[in-house]
Every structure is written in structure tokens, then in C-alpha cells.
């Protein structure tokens, strides 16, 4: 969920290599970066920012396993207890015939579950509009933002100047 009600000071960079070197310098100076925005995923940014690996895939595994169990146990119950029918002389509990459906439900549960989880974690969804700092962040500019409570304005401006930001601004979101 994006934190709201913040006063942010941000600098825009023209190039992702400038962005990465700026983030590195900020980390060296122990400046507390609020967030970094870019028009596309920048290779090697996550480790520099010190972001932990997402745990979304763990959720994905659990959803998938849930799908496997739902399909397999569901079909087992249906075809052996609830409504046993003989198909082509096969036993009621015909594992090979269950496999394709088990596979489908595994994929379905994992995909839908991960999508929904991702949306919830990021506060996305129908009707949600997230604030943005500058129009060109969605186009060709790379942005580092500081929370103004964690850094003085002069420090931030000095940092942006030293690292070659092409534009500096402030915005309340």
C-alpha cells in the first residue's frame, strides 16, 4: 500500500545509469530514500536499493498446492463417494484421468491467487488512482524521492545537484 499524506522532495534523472549511481551514493551517505520511480524496470536496481526478494512466489506455491488438493480430492470424492460412474471400464478412482484437471486447477488457483494478492499488497484495483510525482516519470525520467521529514531540504538539493539530477521538485501526496 502506498503511504499517503507525505511531503516529498524528488529529483529527476535522464538516464538509468545516473539513477543507479545516485542511489548508490545515497546509500553510502545513509540517506533514507522514500522510493524510486522509473518508466520501466531497471536491471540491478533492487539489490542496490536493498529491497528484499518478493515473497509473492511463496503465496503462489501455497495457492497452487491448494488448487492441486482441491481438484484431486474433489474428484476423488465425486467419483468414488458422491456419484460413482464407470467410464470405459476404468476404476472409479482413475488417477491418470484426474491429472489434467488437477494441473489446470493448480495453474488457475496459483495465477488468480497471485494476481489478487499482488493487487491487494500494492493497493491496486478498480477505481484506485495512485498519486504520481511528475508526468514524465511515466515517460522517460527516473526519479528518487525523499520524505521531507527525514532529510533537510538543503541536504536533498545538494545531493540532487551532486548526482546530476536534471530537475528537482517537491510535492505533497
Amino acid at each position: 500500500m502506498v503511504e499517503r499524506n507525505k511531503d516529498l522532495i524528488f529529483g529527476l534523472y535522464d538516464d538509468e545509469t545516473e539513477l543507479i549511481s545516485a542511489v548508490k551514493q545515497a546509500k553510502e551517505k545513509h540517506l533514507d530514500i522514500f522510493d524510486v520511480f522509473s518508466p520501466f524496470p531497471v536491471h540491478g536496481l533492487d539489490p542496490v536499493l536493498g529491497l528484499e526478494e518478493s515473497r509473492l512466489h511463496v503465496a503462489g506455491f501455497i495457492y497452487g498446492a491448494l488448487g492441486t488438493l482441491t481438484a484431486f480430492l474433489g474428484m476423488t470424492w465425486i467419483f468414488t463417494k458422491d456419484w460413482p460412474i464407470i467410464f470405459g471400464g476404468k476404476p472409479h478412482w482413475s488417477v491418470p484421468a484426474f491429472i489434467p484437471i488437477t494441473f489446470e486447477l493448480t495453474v488457475l488457483f496459483a495465477a488468480v491467487g497471485m494476481t489478487v494478492t499482488f493487487y491487494i499488497i500494492n493497493g491496486l484495483g478498480p477505481g484506485v488512482t495512485n498519486p504520481y510525482l511528475h508526468d514524465r516519470i511515466t515517460d522517460d525520467k527516473f526519479c528518487i524521492a525523499f520524505d521531507s521529514h527525514h532529510i533537510s531540504e538543503s541536504d536533498a538539493k545538494a545531493f540532487f545537484k551532486a548526482t546530476g539530477a536534471s530537475e528537482v521538485g517537491a510535492k505533497h501526496i
Binding site: 470405459g88 471400464g89 476404468k90 491418470p96 484421468a97 491429472i99 489434467p100
Partner: peptide
């Protein structure tokens, strides 16, 4: 592997 196995198992 499974595609081959299942079709043969199913058609019997």
C-alpha cells in the same frame, strides 16, 4: 511422457 501414457491408458 504423460500425454503418451494417458492416451494409451484411456483408449485401452
Amino acid at each position: 511422457w504423460f500425454s503418451q501414457y494417458m492416451l494409451i491408458w484411456y483408449a485401452n
